[in-house]
Design a protein around this nucleic acid. Structure first.
Lengths: 251, 251
DNA sequence: CGGTGCTTTGAAGCCTATCAACAAAAGTGG
DNA sequence: CCACTTTTGTTGATAGGCTTCAAAGCACCG
C-alpha cells in the first residue's frame, strides 16, 4: 500500500483537495438524482485514489469488512466462476460507479470485481462511509437511488439475456453499456468498448465466436458501427422501443 | 370487496384469530431466520385473507400504494410482457412468500403478479405494515433477511438461465422451485409442480416444446421423476454441487 | 523478433425453435 | 353427469441458431 489517507486522523470536516478530485465522477453521477446535493461529507470516508496499470481482479470474500470502491475512470465488471471454469459476468461499472454496493450488490454473494487496465479507483472506508450516510439522510437517499437504479437496469438486462436471441441480447447490452458510460461523463458520439468479445460473451452467455459474428451482422444491418475499440449505435430510439428498453436514471 | 378487517379500527395489539390462521405459513417462513421471533405486531396490518378460485393476474402500477400480498397457500409468479406479446417470468412464490416486497422487488418495476388457481393470499395494509416494521427493528430485520435471500436466489437463477444449456437450466429451476416450496411447509418427497410447461418456458427462456423434451431427457437420465402434476428429484446433492447451487435460507 | 492474446473466418455438428398434428387433461355450460 | 370447448402435453419433421474445433491474421509488448 502506498501512502494515503486511509488510516490517519485527517481533518474531519475539512475539504480534502485530493479527495474532491478523486470523487469528481462519483459526484457527477450522484448529482443526476439531485443536482445541488452537498457531497462534502464523503470526504470523511475518503482513503485514497488508486491507479491500476493492468487488468486486476479484486477477490471479495464474504463476511469481511471491505472498503467501498468507486470507479473514478476506466471500466470494471463483477463476475462469478462456475465449477467447470466458465465465467459469468453479472454487472458492469463505468465512471462514477459504486462497485458492489447497495441493493444491487445484495444479490451477489462473494462478488468478484475485475478492473480494466488504466482504471482509477477511489477507495472509501466502509465504516466511515456508513457513518456519513447515517448522519446525512439526504445523502443516503442518493446512494439508495443509485443502487436501486442499478438493480433495475440489471434486472432489465437479465430478462433480455434469458429470453432474447443473440442479436437482441447484444443490442441490449450495448444500449445498457452506452447508458452506463454516459452517467457521469459525456463520452461523445463514439463510445469506448472496454470489453473484449470474450467478456461480452461471458456477459451474454454466448461464445466469443458467435459474438463476433453477431456484431458483424449488427453492423451490416446498420445498427452498429465499429472503429477499433470504439463503437457507435444507429437509431437508438428505435432499438430501445423494439427492446422495451427503459431508463432508470434521471437527467 | 367482501367484508374484511381492511378499514375498521380493529383492536390494536390484540391477537386476531383470523389473522393468526391466515399468517401461518408466513410465520413459519420468517421463523427460519429467528425461530422465536414475535410476529404478533403484524396483526395490526392484517386486512383479509382472500381465496382465488382461478388463475388471477394482479396488475400493479408504479407509484400506487399497493397492499402487501403474502401467499398463504398455493403458488404465484411475477412476470413482464414484451412488446411482441412474449412473457417473461422473473420470480416465483411458494407458500409464505412475500410477493413483490423488499430488496428483491426493487429491481422489478411495474411488477405483475399471477396467482395460480386455488391460492390463498393474505393482504396487509402497506402503511400499517411499514409502521409495524419501523417500531420493531428485529421484525424489520426478518423481512430484510427474507428479501435478501430471495434476491440472492433470483441472481443465482438468472446467472444459470443466461449461461447454461437447457437441461441444466431446468434442473436449476427445479432445485430452486424445490427450495421455494419447502421454506414454509414440508411438501413431502413428491413436490407439486404448480407451473405448466409453457410457464416453465417463460421462466427459462425456452419453448414449451423444448421444455417437454428436456424434462423427458432428465427423466430417462434418472434425475427426475414425474407423476401427473407432481415431481421428485434424484440425487439433489450431486445436482447442487454440479450446478454450484447454494442455499441462502437458514434452517 | 517471437510470444501472447484478441479477432475473424470456415466447416461441421449439436442444440433449440418452429410448424403441425394429435392425445390428454381440464375447464365450461347444459 | 355428459358433450363441448379450450388448454396443456407429447411427438415428428424440418429449419435455423449457436457452439465447437481449427486455422490464420492482427495488434501489442517483452
Amino acid at each position: 500500500m502506498q501512502k494515503g489517507l486511509h488510516d490517519d486522523e485527517e481533518g474531519q470536516g475539512r475539504l480534502a483537495p485530493e479527495a474532491s478530485v478523486a470523487m469528481a465522477t462519483l459526484v457527477r453521477r450522484l448529482h443526476r438524482f439531485s443536482p445541488g446535493a452537498d457531497l462534502t461529507p464523503l470526504n470523511h470516508a475518503f482513503q485514497q485514489l488508486r491507479s491500476l496499470d493492468r487488468d486486476e481482479p479484486v477477490w471479495r470474500h464474504k463476511s469481511e469488512d471491505h472498503p467501498v470502491l468507486v470507479l473514478e475512470s476506466g471500466f470494471a465488471y463483477s463476475f462469478t466462476l462456475y465449477p467447470d471454469g466458465r465465467r459469468h459476468i453479472g454487472d458492469m461499472f463505468g465512471p462514477g460507479a459504486l462497485c458492489g454496493f447497495g441493493s444491487a450488490a445484495v444479490a451477489e454473494e462473494g462478488l468478484n470485481l475485475a478492473f480494466k487496465s488504466g482504471s482509477r479507483v477511489t477507495v472509501f472506508d466502509a465504516a466511515r462511509l456508513a457513518d456519513a450516510l447515517h448522519e446525512k439522510p439526504e445523502l443516503e437517499l442518493l446512494f439508495k437511488q443509485d443502487g436501486d437504479a442499478r438493480a433495475r437496469r440489471t434486472a432489465q438486462r437479465n430478462r433480455g439475456l434469458i429470453s432474447l436471441p443473440a442479436a437482441e441480447k447484444l443490442a441490449l447490452v450495448l444500449l445498457d453499456l452506452r447508458e452506463e458510460l454516459s452517467l457521469a461523463t459525456d463520452p461523445g458520439e463514439w463510445l469506448p468498448l472496454p470489453l473484449t468479445l470474450r467478456e461480452l460473451g461471458d456477459l451474454t452467455g454466448l461464445t466469443d465466436v458467435h459474438v463476433s459474428r453477431t456484431l458483424k451482422k449488427l453492423q451490416t444491418d446498420g445498427m452498429l458501427e465499429r472503429r477499433g475499440k470504439r463503437f457507435r449505435m444507429g437509431d437508438t430510439a428505435a432499438l430501445e422501443s423494439a427492446l422495451d428498453y427503459r431508463h432508470f436514471y434521471y437527467g
